[in-house]
Design a binder for these strands. Sequence first.
DNA 1: GACTATACGGAGACAGTCTCCGGTTAGCAA
DNA 2: TTGCTAACCGGAGACTGTCTCCGTATAGTC
Lengths: 204, 204
Amino acid sequence: MVPVTSATEAHDAPAKPLRADAQRNYDKLVAAAREVFAERGAEGSLDEIAKRAGVGPGTLYRHFPTRDDLIDALMRDWSARVVADSEAAVIDELPARETLEKWFDVFIGHITLHRGAAAKITAAMDDPSSPIHGKCQVLSSANDRVLDYVRQTGQLRPGVETRDVMRLVSGVANVADAAGMPADDVAPMLGIVIDGILQDSATS
Amino acid sequence: MVPVTSATEAHDAPAKPLRADAQRNYDKLVAAAREVFAERGAEGSLDEIAKRAGVGPGTLYRHFPTRDDLIDALMRDWSARVVADSEAAVIDELPARETLEKWFDVFIGHITLHRGAAAKITAAMDDPSSPIHGKCQVLSSANDRVLDYVRQTGQLRPGVETRDVMRLVSGVANVADAAGMPADDVAPMLGIVIDGILQDSATS
DNA sequence: GACTATACGGAGACAGTCTCCGGTTAGCAA
DNA sequence: TTGCTAACCGGAGACTGTCTCCGTATAGTC
């Protein structure tokens, strides 16, 4: 397995250590947020999260000034998983189509960690001021990696930009998320995208 | 020009006539809503709309119980324009690719009448209880019409469902809207979708 | 001119976001 | 242990937006 590292995660390290009680509350808040977002979606009440964590609202807002800071926090090991999955997608050197099918599937899985997450993450892609923006860059790099593999097989349609593919698949994730679509409804949409990415001569 | 009619608009007629003052307020509210949504996006304050229309909140909520009812109201002639544009897209019998480029462009234009509208409309597609759902069906039929033309040219890739195309283009509209993308950034995404829809033999 | 169905509109309940600051406590040093 | 202080806590409450209830006003009619 190729070692997985990411420069964009560097900022995780130098954060100065919290006081013990602060760390405890931080962890409780992240756990509570995970619960509430899972139940109520990305627009779940922040005060509810504070209440469920057993702390005051002030404590929540000190740790996480914005909702996005909180979302960013509960994606702690998300980046590593994304990178690992992109590595896994290319390691077996499967046919281009199959590689893309698998990759897009995990791509969408990562982007829809709870209801409403796809919209949040998509919005952060073009907003460098968002705390989640770094995560988007990780996802973008991972996507580049997979598409580079496809390009290397010679089956990538000329003129296809990875950035556009990323946006396209994010768009699919958005509508799938918003409509609560089952995977069976998502696959044909991805099929069209894949047909648009690959040269027809390569389409088995 | 082929006559344009749509059964889904039928409910516009039998609405019993409002009292004069009620009709006045209705119109003022729709105008104010158009303003506020244009300025602040689909999440603009409803009380602000009432205030700007010079009426109380109660009046607003009596006419439009939900936000979607209000959005639906300010899309009064939207359906007719959508249908007309789909007719226009096929009437010249342009090459398939060109037809789709033009149609997707107006499709996205219609769906992004103000910031945040794309998400609202996309969500309404799979939600029959939404007041906007009827509008989505109009859009869907219009889209079918254009794709039927493309199919008839023999250049539609086998297995492509119009429903999936509709969702895909809506997804593009969503990310474009969320990120405030210029048209130049949207075109390449649509290019990929079109490549996915058309047979390569037909791609000039 | 009077009557009534219809409509108005604002007070206020409710929910969510976010801040301020008096009180508490962890960690450390003596 | 004790005492000190920087760091942290948490809840009262200001603020914003949603939505309802109901006493008041008026358009349309006879």
